[in-house]
Amino acid sequence: MKKISGDSDLELVEKIVQKDEVAFEHLVDIYKLSVLNTIYRYTGNSAYAEDISQEVFCKVWLNIKKFRAKSKFSTWLYRIVVNECLNHQGRLKKRMFLFRKIENKFFLKPEGKEVNYEEAEQKEVIRKLIKALPERQRMALILCQYEDRSYAEISQIMNISVPAVESLLFRARETIKKQLIYPKKEKEKI
């Protein structure tokens, strides 16, 4: 692939509006890893992550004209990421609901998930704890912790106020901290 060096996001966007595929591939190259990992941390599934990130870049290509350059391109991109993640979560919930209905009707109920915190690797525990967070807390934490987004950017991406971001992050961290310190107690509560 031909590389365009030194092009800023806005220059690339202008080229993509003119349907420049090389510029688009360059843009994908810049963001694909961070988009993929954000989605992966959110969904906890690499196959879903790749599928959703492709969906995100499809939307970028098809809707690039809607980008008004009022915010950074990355903010706009991450808004698409957040929307896609939330949509995916919704679809998954519906599917899980149907699956559970069938499972309850025809199969024996499986026993509650037993996570052995002592034996499990730390990464796996962290991944599970992040996945167990409520949707918005999870997204705010991922954007702040792994994507190094500022509170102002997160508030733009998630369409909420900065104090709301602060609150989401605080609650997310508190939940994870409690789970790490008292895993069994928290599990009993659930």
């Binding site: 890893l33 993929l36 992966y40 990464k123 962290i126 991944r127 912790q145 792994y146 994870i176």
Partner: peptide, 15 residues
């Protein structure tokens, strides 16, 4: 501890 979570790589067929 959160930072210990390693990133994943995209597949070669991504593009």
């Amino acid at each position: 501890r959160l930072a210990a979570l390693e990133p994943i790589e995209y597949s070669p067929y991504f593009i």
